[in-house]
Nucleic acid binder design. Structure first.
Lengths: 220, 220
DNA sequence: CCGAGGGTCGTACTTAAGTATTCGGTTGCG
DNA sequence: CGCAACCGAATACTTAAGTACGACCCTCGG
């Protein structure tokens, strides 16, 4: 039996969902809330397996409530069910730790399926949301290559040189680098100079950009 | 009727899929290929609605074939079906333009459903893949904030100053910027100097880093 | 109308960055 | 062993970056 906590400020929506989920024998709505602020107490009281959460609510909204929830150990899974699917909403919800993101126009049967999937620990996203995520990662095209190339280039440097390069990448001046790495100023200059010739760059800004590229985009 | 082209170097896998999809009355396998190189010709000849594509193949592999395909107008949708789901595989496939990415251990019924979904234009991802995508975008946590903060700071600058800042962000020297923006060197220096004081920075490298932060992470 | 802010440029100066060359010590390799 | 690399450092120099002031023009809002 999947124990569900329903969180939506609209009583009509809650009624609709109750009706919709009533047909599923393995799903039970154990409590309801109209505000994210009530969620922690209800979760503590009823220990639901899953929280069906709206995003837009007065007071504590969905993502905020989700974040608070998921910070706890063995928190229930959160399935966000909403009318709004702007980039901001999607991102906030997923970052808050939601395992699913469905639009309210999803067919009832699919919502039931999604609840089972999320309760089982698998993620579920509406097609629109999936498409955006794909576009987002695919939009990074070349990013990975850039990062790989940058890393390969930095690999050409000696250990100490890479340290200096990283410091340059943090926006440090030669003098600061000298202090940080316990070196004399001329030494730092020598390193920077050799980094520039080795990597065929013109100035420290380009070192900084290269270092940044190298540290970006780890892979999916 | 969904017309499918089957692409997999393993004849046994193709036989298995043929059997698996035989039960679906609305799905028809119109052709098969064992190599990505054959795909363009077969697509041209049979005009399938969907290509069920393996990733690892001798010669032209799945992502390469997908990329070639999707470059054409009204190309068929591509559903990648594979045993391997490393980050690299997933990314390459999605970037190549695949609309779906399923693992071969997906239950037959779900594969059939996925084919219908993808043929209808909606994306489909295996839970593992979905989870990675979520982790990836969620992993950017704070990135957005950094980007937003960076953009807000750049917004403090006048239009011309921002242009100079962007040039600095490209690793340009003052002299180069002067040439690019048709300015005198002193003017560029004046701009850079005012950017530094306004944004409370110490040197041009930090301007570059700020510009980079600002241009990162557009939003889903 | 006049001041504020943007944009441009100039001169003059200080400081930081980058180059060149040389040196000494260490470690690893053929 | 001898050579090559890495690491640290020095001196001396050139060039770029950054600061400080002053000046001019333009536009826009009080």
């Amino acid at each position: 039996m999947i124990r569900v906590l329903l969180v939506d400020d609209d009583a009509i929506v809650r009624a609709g969902l109750r009706l919709m989920l009533g047909g599923a024998p393995d799903i039970e709505i154990v409590a309801e809330a109209a505000d994210g602020a009530e969620v922690p107490a209800l979760v503590a009281a009823y220990g639901p397996d899953l929280v069906l959460m709206d995003i837009r609510m007065p007071g504590v909204d969905g993502p905020a409530a989700t974040k608070a929830l998921r910070a706890q150990p063995d928190a229930p899974e959160v399935l966000v069910l909403t009318t709004f699917h702007t980039d901001e909403h999607v991102l906030r919800a997923l970052r808050a730790g939601a395992a699913g993101f469905l639009l309210k126009d999803t067919p009832p049967q699919d919502i039931v399926t999604a609840i089972r999937t999320v309760a089982a620990g698998d993620p579920v996203l509406s097609p629109v949301v999936t498409r955006r995520l794909i576009v987002r990662v695919a939009g990074d095209s070349g990013q990975d290559d850039r990062a790989a190339v940058a890393r390969a280039r930095l690999a050409l440097l000696a250990e100490r040189e890479r340290e200096v390069a990283r410091a340059v990448g943090r926006g440090r001046s030669n003098a600061e680098i000298a202090r940080e790495l316990h070196l004399a100023l001329p030494t730092v200059k020598a390193h920077v100079s050799r980094i520039l010739t080795r990597l065929d760059l013109n100035n420290r800004v380009q070192i900084a950009l290269l270092v940044h590229d190298a540290s970006a985009a780890e892979d999916v």
